[in-house]
Design a protein around this nucleic acid. Structure first.
Length: 422
RNA sequence: GUGGCUGUGGUGAAGUGGUCAACACGGCGGAUUGUGGCUCCGUUAUUCGUGGGUUCGAGUCCCAUCAGUCACCCCA
């Protein structure tokens, strides 16, 4: 019986790992230019962290976590997202003692027990950024700019930025009640999911894809109209900043985040061609989270990007860079007696940064030439009996077809000359 | 978690109850016993996701199971 990868996981093979490296590198570059520094937190944390941070009633916590008890009887959980862990680290290592705000980014795998689908895996990867310690809308703007700029740098267009404010503990309950009042008499007509949402999280009803629910919720009060002066000022301030920065956005009063910790700003970047998994990036402000996790009350904002989804979008738009497998030199030994000389040659060249490979399969010379062409190799060094006795190699330039018998020391020189000509 | 579709070699796929499971690409080997990207030749699935069942006989029908995929749900 063959063993395959667990459901919802994937091997990233050499034919695609280059795209991942490109994506990660681009993200790092953008972060560098925004002065965000990388943080690497553990893949698993105490379950308690996510219960408190994300919220016990959210779907993520209620039914999607990989939770287990370890041999020391501790309940631990594979991280389903990384904001709670970053906040934990912020408090644990007293990063608040450093000049504020603390600007961090991360790249790594996350785990959710979901039913797999295109762009949705049980182990998936997120790139995310967090800015902790600053309350004003300018950080919100920077955060959104960072996400947008990364998308632009990757060449993605057709992206839409949606913006909303979900209020704060002062004004959200007020809005919640208004919304419930509006929906109360329509309750029996709503779908089953929405009926149960009515008490738990009525804001999510606005986000329901069911057409009937959608119609019924038309005309519902907008949260933007119910914000307290503080939140409302923050929201308009952010819009002014974004407009000044030349960022297009769409106000979406129905945009709701799925995690409990969000306050004020909520945003999402969508790539519509991806269908049901069109949300490529999502984030927002979480002014209550740090205190919730046991720190001093501290404001914060962040976002996360689904890298598999970004990759899907890049693929759809043909935006992958060319990944070359070319090498500088392929060594073709005619028999095993030629191997020591070949190895020695390669070791010298590799030390000086050249890429070399050799045939290890005792193939015929013809087969070796064919193989060398797959890379392709710029040069091939043929080593037969005669070469071994003379301590030389037959160096062939694969572009020009020229070849000559040369000393080992001369090989590098010839290869560099060849490079100049090209 | 709910529902629809799919499952044949490394890959793309023919085959819809009855002799060796087409074909294409790729891989390997050869035509040239020291030389590539073209051409030609040979070779490459004791077996049709897995396990049961129906039948004289199943890749082909039925059931179960697993996996993939799409939609819902959820979210990045």
């Amino acid at each position: 019986m063959l063993i395959s990868v667990p459901k919802g996981t994937k091997d990233i093979l050499p034919d695609t790992s280059g795209y991942w490296q490109y994506l990660e590198q681009t993200a790092r570059e953008v972060c560098r230019s925004y002065a965000y520094q990388e943080i690497r937190t553990p893949i698993f944390e105490h379950t308690e962290l996510f219960l408190r941070g994300i919220g016990e009633t959210t779907d993520i916590v209620a039914k999607e976590m990989y939770t287990f008890v370890d041999k020391g009887d501790r309940s631990v959980t594979l991280r389903p997202e990384n904001t709670a862990a970053v906040v934990r680290a912020f408090i644990e290592h007293k990063l608040y003692a450093l000049p504020q705000p603390t600007k961090l980014f991360y790249i790594g795998p996350m785990f959710r027990y979901d039913k797999p689908q295109a762009g949705r895996y049980r182990q998936f990867h997120q790139f995310g950024a967090e800015a902790i310690g600053a309350a004003g809308p300018a950080v919100d703007a920077e955060m959104i700019l960072l996400a947008v700029q990364l998308c632009q740098k990757l060449g993605l267009n057709e992206l839409k930025l949606y913006l909303n404010s979900v209020g704060c503990p002062n004004c959200r309950p007020v809005y919640r009640e208004k919304l419930q009042d509006f929906l109360r008499d329509k309750l029996p007509q709503l779908c089953g999911d929405c009926q149960s949402r009515f008490d738990k999280n009525p804001l999510r009803i606005l986000d329901c894809k069911n057409e009937k629910c959608n119609q019924l919720s038309q005309g519902a009060p907008h949260i933007a109209d119910c914000l307290c002066p503080e939140c409302s000022g923050h929201f308009t301030g952010l819009q002014t900043l974004l407009t000044a920065a030349g960022v297009d956005f769409v106000l979406n009063p129905r945009l709701v985040r799925g995690l409990d910790y969000y306050t004020k700003t909520a945003f999402e970047i969508q790539y519509t061609p991806l269908g049901a998994q069109s949300a490529v990036c999502g984030g927002g402000r979480y002014d209550g989270l740090i205190a919730e996790c046991g720190g001093q009350p501290t404001p914060g904002i962040g976002f996360a990007m689904g890298l598999e989804r970004i990759l899907l979008a890049l693929e759809k738009q043909n935006l992958f860079p060319e990944i070359s497998t070319a090498i500088d030199l392929f060594v073709a030994p005619m028999d095993q007696a030629a191997q020591p000389l070949g190895l020695k040659l390669m070791t010298d060249l590799r030390r000086s940064g050249l890429t070399c490979d050799m045939d290890y399969m005792n193939r015929s010379l013809k087969a070796q030439m064919k193989y060398a062409n797959k890379y392709p190799a710029r040069f091939v060094a043929i080593i037969g009996e005669e070469e071994v006795t003379q301590n030389k190699v037959m160096l062939k330039n694969m572009t020009s077809g020229e070849q000559q018998l040369v000393d080992l020391d001369a090989v590098r020189q010839m290869m560099e000359e060849g490079k100049d000509k090209e």
